[in-house]
Design a protein around this nucleic acid. Sequence first.
DNA 1: CTAGAACCTCAAGTTCGCTCGAGGTCTGAG
DNA 2: CTCAGACCTCGAGCGAACTTGAGGTTCTAG
Lengths: 150, 150
Amino acid sequence: MLTVSEVAHRSGFAPSALRYYEAQGLIEATRTAGGQRRYARSVLRRLAFIRAASNVGLALEEVRAELARLPSGRTPTKSDWHRISVDWRSRLDEQVAALEALRDKLDSCIGCGCLSLKQCAISNPADKAADSEDAPGAAYLPRLLRRPTS
Amino acid sequence: MLTVSEVAHRSGFAPSALRYYEAQGLIEATRTAGGQRRYARSVLRRLAFIRAASNVGLALEEVRAELARLPSGRTPTKSDWHRISVDWRSRLDEQVAALEALRDKLDSCIGCGCLSLKQCAISNPADKAADSEDAPGAAYLPRLLRRPTS
DNA sequence: CTAGAACCTCAAGTTCGCTCGAGGTCTGAG
DNA sequence: CTCAGACCTCGAGCGAACTTGAGGTTCTAG
C-alpha cells in the first residue's frame, strides 16, 4: 500500500490534487486505523489515465465518466483501450483542424490588413451566426482553444 | 456615437462584457450628461481585435498589452498588423504542433495498450522532467490545450 | 518513548472572464 | 409630459481545477 506522498511523487500530482480527485470520485483509497490514506498500486495507472485524458482536453467530469465505463477492477483490455484511443484521436483531430483553420484565416488577413468587423473571418462575431442558432460551420472559432467542440 | 446596445449587437459582445472590458482598460467610452456610455465607432475595430486575440488564445491581460503597443489613435498600419500576425501565427503553429505530437503519441499507445506510468509518453508525468526544472522538450504536453506555452 | 515529518478535515481562497441581480436613473418617441 | 425600455453602479456569483491555511492527529525512525 502506497502513502499519499509516494503516490504524489510517482504520479506527479500534488497531494491536494489526490484528495480532490478522491472527493470527486475519480480514485479511491483505503484508510489506516488512524485514518490516513493508503493507495493500491493500481491507482497509479488510474492517475496516468487521468493525466492523459486531461492532456487530451477532457474535463474531469468526462474523465469520471470514462473511468466509470472501464470495467472496474480489471485492467483495460486492448479493445477497451482501442475504443478510447479512437475517441481521443478524433477529438484531437478536430482540435488540430480548428486551429489550422484559424491560422489560415489569419494568413488571409495578412493580405488585407483588415480586422474589420464584416470582412475578417477571424474576428467576425455572431452577426450571421447568432441569427441561426446553429452556427453555419467553423467560419470563426470561438474559444475552441479552451474547450473542445462539445 | 453608439449606444451600449448598438455596440453589443454589432460586436457580438454582451453589454456586461463591454463594461468589463472598459473596467479592464481595454476599451473606453465617453458619457452623456446623464452618465450613459457612448462609444466611438473605432471601438468596434478594437473589439474585433479583442475577439481575434482571444480566439488565438491570448489572455485579456496580453490583449491589453498588445492594444497598448498599437499606436493609440491611429489605425494600425500594414506593418503593425503584420508584426502581430506573425506573432499569432507562430503561436498557433506551436499549438498545432503540440496537439499533433500528442495525437501521434496516442497512436503509438494504441499499439502498446499501455498507459503505464513509465512507458507511455502521453501520460508520463514529471518523473524525469520535474527534476530538471526546465523540462527536456515536448515529450508529453501538460495542459497545452487550456493555455499556450506561456 | 519521543520528536518531527507526514497526515487529517473543512472551509475558504485563487484565477479567468465574464454574468446576474437589486435598486435606482436616463432617454426619447408619442 | 409620460412612460417604457435602456442604462447605471456595485457587489456577488459561477465553474473549473485545484491550492492554502488553520488547527489538530498519526506514524515511524532512533
